[in-house]
Amino acid sequence: MSHLGNKIKAGYYRTPDLQGEYLKKLLHFTGDTPIFDPTCGEGFILNYLATGHEPRNIKSYGVELDRGRAASAAKIIDRLVQAPIESMVISHNVFGLLLLNPPYDNTIVGIGKEGTERKEFIELARNTKYLIPGGLMIYIIPSYRFADKHISRFLATQFEEVGVAKFSDEDYEDYKQCIFIGRKKVGKKKKYNKIMHEFLLSMESEDFIKTNVSSIKQFIGQKQWEVPEADVEVPTFYSKIENKRDFILSIKENKGFLAFKERTKPKQLEIGGDPIINIAQGQMALLLASGAVNGVLGEGEHLHAVQGVETVSNVETTESTDDMIITKTRTKRDISIKIILPTGKVKKLV
């Protein structure tokens, strides 16, 4: 995929499958362990690194923001959460292997804030704490980004048994990315590696990378990193942002919601029994005219269809006095009920 295609995908750079194959050959799992990718995309590389190590139990954990990519990843990742990594609550010091290929863009600036930070460093600092001491990290970013003062200093302080390789020739020109493999140091006090720091700072130059950074393909058969054993069940791994779809069933079964639905259900008009008070002629006419008595009555040979109809007319009356004649007009309501018999005969009750 071209750089343009990746930019359209908002910083999503999937690691090429070939580079994943090379990476897998550089790893040796010493026992059962969980592995983690905080921006796993469709999960292909994470799943590839986790499989084929029987009888070792390698359990994969992934987080992905994009819904479509997360749906694909959920089919092949043991435990997948669709959420922003910023919302995740995860146990510290639990994963034997961290696969880190963060988005290549800047953070969003909030109202009233100035400046942005590159996500490569933010995700590096955030996710290193989830790696067990002595755990292995694979960090994939654009080559020149290793020269960032924050990234280079962090890597030179927090990691040992380090290897830096560029993508093999088949992919490097398209991606311009390098791979950092290192083991998280043990203990609170960590010695800064000046030589490593200066090497990373020099990676700002493409000429330096071409002459001093080996291809990952050259590591095959020359170096292998051991991934340490750890408990495959991570105690805490969830998002503070709940998925709305998870609430649907709970809401449907909620007693309060069911009671609300019952109270707001449209009422059905039922005719039958004795009225509480006598119904006036005009009221009866309205009931009939509105079709309240419409319906099918009886069964079998006694089945009847009933329809009520109201007709309205004006009736004039006159009153005479010594000086004038007064004419009054009133509304007259007549009721008619039609009954259709099973034979098709229609009876009209006036």
Results as ranks from 00 to 15, higher is better:
residue 114 E to T: 13
residue 109 V to A: 07
residue 50 A to E: 03
residue 60 S to D: 14
residue 145 R to H: 10
residue 135 G to S: 06
residue 65 L to E: 13
residue 96 G to L: 05
residue 142 P to W: 09
residue 43 G to R: 11
residue 119 K to G: 05
residue 148 D to G: 14
residue 79 R to P: 02
residue 96 G to D: 04
residue 148 D to V: 03
residue 58 I to K: 10
residue 122 I to S: 04
residue 131 L to W: 05
residue 112 G to A: 13
residue 96 G to F: 01
residue 143 S to E: 06
residue 149 K to E: 03
residue 121 F to Y: 14
residue 110 G to F: 09
residue 58 I to W: 11
residue 42 E to A: 09
residue 151 I to F: 00
residue 96 G to Y: 05
residue 122 I to C: 07
residue 53 H to Y: 15
residue 129 K to G: 03
residue 142 P to I: 14
residue 142 P to G: 10
residue 103 P to M: 09
residue 75 K to H: 11
residue 66 D to S: 10
residue 80 L to C: 13
residue 72 S to H: 12
residue 39 T to Y: 08
residue 152 S to T: 06
residue 147 A to C: 01
residue 95 F to M: 06
residue 56 R to P: 00
residue 107 T to G: 02
residue 40 C to K: 09
residue 91 S to I: 12
residue 45 I to S: 01
residue 89 V to T: 10
residue 150 H to E: 09
residue 86 E to I: 07
residue 69 R to N: 10
residue 98 L to R: 11
residue 35 I to V: 15
residue 151 I to K: 01
residue 54 E to C: 02
residue 131 L to A: 09
residue 109 V to R: 15
residue 76 I to A: 04
residue 73 A to W: 11
residue 117 E to T: 13
residue 75 K to N: 09
residue 67 R to V: 12
residue 97 L to R: 13
residue 56 R to T: 01
residue 104 Y to T: 12
residue 59 K to E: 00
residue 59 K to F: 08
residue 36 F to Y: 15
residue 77 I to Y: 01
residue 108 I to D: 07
residue 60 S to E: 13
residue 80 L to M: 15
residue 152 S to R: 03
residue 91 S to Y: 13
residue 129 K to D: 04
residue 73 A to T: 13
residue 136 L to N: 06
residue 149 K to R: 12
residue 57 N to S: 09
residue 46 L to D: 02
residue 106 N to D: 12
residue 91 S to H: 10
residue 145 R to E: 14
residue 144 Y to E: 03
residue 135 G to A: 07
residue 141 I to V: 15
residue 77 I to S: 01
residue 54 E to L: 12
residue 57 N to F: 11
residue 44 F to Y: 14
residue 133 P to Q: 13
residue 61 Y to A: 10
residue 103 P to E: 07
residue 103 P to Q: 09
residue 101 N to Y: 05
